[in-house]
């Protein structure tokens, strides 16, 4: 199957930003796809399947990130990750980190 590349732009919506738990959720979701997935902030790219790399982005609430996926399931991967951002990682208003 031919590899395709898909990308989209998302905004970090949860007040705590991309701390450890959202980074974990993202990396787990990303790992369910075959596509290679990057999260890009101001030109800096992180492997979307690596919690360690995602945390190096230090993305606070309001940060705009690009999600770029390359692979046969790139379209589904981008959609799935964008949905996580839109849901605010199910922690909007939570006090826990």
């Amino acid at each position: 199957m031919n590899d395709i590349t898909r990308s989209t732009t998302v905004t970090v919506q949860n007040p705590q930003g991309l701390h450890a738990r959202p980074a974990d959720l993202l990396a787990r979701r990303a790992s369910q796809f075959d596509a290679q997935i990057e999260l890009i902030k101001n030109g800096e790219s992180a492997d979307g399947k690596s919690i360690l790399q995602i945390m190096t982005l230090a993305a606070e609430m309001g940060t705009v990130l690009s999600i770029r996926a390359t692979g046969h399931d790139a379209e589904q991967a981008v959609a799935a990750l964008a949905e996580l951002f839109e849901s605010g990682f199910a922690e909007n208003g939570r006090s826990h980190s």
Binding site: G17, H19, M55, T56, A58
Partner: peptide, 15 residues
């Protein structure tokens, strides 16, 4: 929350 993120950033970058 920003300070916490920047500490995580530093730790993960170094590691």
């Amino acid at each position: 929350p920003g300070d916490h993120l920047r500490a995580l950033e530093n730790i993960s970058r170094q590691l």
